Computed example of a mutant assay.
Amino acid sequence: MSALYRLKGLEYSYLWNGKQVPVLKGIDLELEKGCFTCIVGPSGTGKTTLLNLLGLIDTPSNGHLEFAGEDVTHLPESEKENVRLHKVGFIFQSFYLIPTLTVLENTSYFLPSLGYNHANAQKVAMETLDLLGLADHAKKKPLELSGGQRQRVAIARAIAKKPAVVLADEPTANLDSVTAEKTINAFKELQKSENTSFIFSTHDSHLVSFAKSVYRMKDGMIDNTKNQEAK
């Protein structure tokens, strides 16, 4: 199977009080297309930063980043936006739902930019909401929902456009065990039907148990790799 990501010596730091603060300290990693991968480790080790680099939200300070066979280390912002729109789905801890839009409108938000007409965008969004058990909430606004329901809307928005990869930061953190199980099954179904790659930052041991590859981060570096058979 061909590589989705190749990272070589990837570093990231930020400026604080006139000094560079290192976050990632030289990541070497290769992730295959169709992967179901978890990145684990204590808070503050750089997991979210790594996802932001993979999603071309942040730019590496040093090193090399390749996505789908293309060097994307220093792409212009306009080209990054195009990659993010067409190929990457994000699930953020903070949801970033638009409060004035309905659940259905939030879910279908990116689809017109991908060439969907209104009817098809609504159809795909409703199918995605139904997959996540949210079809009955389609006309509600985000503030009318619980935290777990809002998390699922954020998930629906990410997967509705059927991206090449979904990057998810603690996607099951706000979900009860039954809902988390259904959500993980939805991820696995999309992985199987669309060959979508999933890369999670997580503390959820249950989600980790479904992963084929688990990478542990410590002090801004990959500490070790554990391979396991996915369920």
Rank of each mutant, 00 (worst) to 15 (best):
L4K: 04
E127I: 09
P76C: 10
F36L: 09
I159E: 02
L75F: 09
K182M: 12
T49E: 01
T73M: 07
D223R: 10
L104I: 11
A119G: 12
P112N: 08
G46P: 00
C38I: 04
T202H: 07
D58G: 05
Q149E: 11
E105W: 07
L24W: 02
V178K: 15
S113P: 00
D223Y: 08
V208S: 06
V208Q: 08
A138R: 12
P42A: 14
Y96W: 09
G133C: 07
T225N: 12
L75E: 06
S177T: 08
P171Q: 03
P142I: 07
A211T: 04
T102N: 09
K140M: 13
K226R: 14
G147W: 11
V124R: 15
I159S: 01
L175D: 02
E32G: 13
S209F: 12
R6V: 05
A158V: 01
S113T: 00
L4D: 00
Y96H: 15
K218L: 14
K87R: 13
S146M: 13
M221F: 08
T48F: 03
M1A: 13
S2K: 08
A119W: 15
V208N: 05
V208P: 08
V153K: 01
L175W: 00
P142M: 09
T183F: 03
N52D: 14
S201N: 10
R157N: 06
H206F: 15
Y12L: 11
G55D: 05
H203G: 04
G44W: 06
D130I: 00
P142D: 03
L15N: 12
V178E: 14
S205H: 14
L51R: 04
K19A: 15
F36H: 05
I27L: 10
E32P: 11
N120M: 13
E30M: 13
S94T: 10
F200Y: 09
S61Y: 03
S201H: 02
T179H: 10
H64I: 02
F200H: 05
V124N: 07
A180G: 11
A138W: 12
Q191H: 10
T45R: 08
P76I: 06
S177Q: 13
G41V: 00
K80P: 11
S43P: 06
T49Y: 01
L31H: 05
K192S: 14
D176E: 04
G34E: 03
K80N: 13
I199F: 07
S61D: 02
A138I: 03
L129A: 08
N195T: 08
M126G: 02
L132F: 06
A138T: 00
V166K: 01
Y215M: 00
E81L: 14
A173E: 02
Y109K: 09
T100Y: 11
Q20G: 12
G18R: 12
L85C: 05
L131D: 10
S201G: 10
K140I: 10
T183Q: 04
E81T: 14
N82V: 06
F210V: 07
K8Q: 14
P60G: 08
Y109W: 07
L145T: 01
I159C: 04
D28L: 08
I57V: 12
S94K: 14
L190T: 04
R150S: 10
K47A: 07
V153W: 03
T102K: 12
Y96T: 01
I199S: 05
L132K: 00
L114A: 11
L101Y: 12
K182P: 08
I39V: 14
L85E: 01
V178M: 11
T172I: 09
V214Y: 05
